[in-house]
């Protein structure tokens, strides 16, 4: 079973469908083996419409590069990916990171909203991950 991603420029991306009690929608994520957890960022929180009541404050701190952020957990999210054998369904908690956009200048807000959510090792490591830019192949397999 192979889930194919795409290179956008030189960066590997995957599409997934999220579904929980409170929201559902499509997310476009950057595959990031440097990220321990799959994490939704500001733009996708807005696009998918994740309500505040779905997010519980995270007990573990998140360390990243730049800016002050608030971190949350969304429990029991159904994650669906498209494979060559049909839909692959996974279930787990997801992290959400939100910047305090109201305290930032418009240019900075614009840049932060351009940041993609990240597909981290918690999901990537459930698969055999291939990322070969030279031949244009990025995929998850098992």
């Amino acid at each position: 079973m192979i889930i194919r991603g795409r290179f956008i420029g030189d960066a590997p991306y995957f599409a997934m469908h999220l579904r929980s009690t409170y929201f559902q929608g499509l997310i476009w994520l950057l595959a990031d083996t440097g990220a321990s957890r799959t994490t939704l960022l500001d733009r996708d929180v807005r696009l998918v419409g994740i309500p505040q009541k779905a997010m519980e404050p995270a007990s573990l701190p998140i360390v990243g590069i730049g800016g002050s952020v608030r971190s949350f957990l969304v429990r029991n999210v159904e994650i669906i990916l498209a494979s060559n054998e049909g839909a692959v369904v996974l279930g787990q908690d997801l992290w959400v990171v939100q910047h305090d956009l109201e305290q930032l200048p418009p240019d900075e807000v614009s840049r932060i909203l351009r940041l993609p959510s990240v597909l981290g090792r918690d999901l990537i490591n459930q698969f055999y991950f291939t990322c070969n830019y030279q031949v244009g192949i990025v995929q998850l397999e098992r």
Binding site: G5, R6, Y13, F14, A15, M16, H17, L26, W28, I80, L81, A82, S83, G86, A87
Partner: peptide, 11 residues
């Protein structure tokens, strides 16, 4: 199948 098609179109 509908979800799979939707994901492929989105990508």
């Amino acid at each position: 199948e509908q979800l799979t098609n939707e994901l492929l179109a989105f990508a």
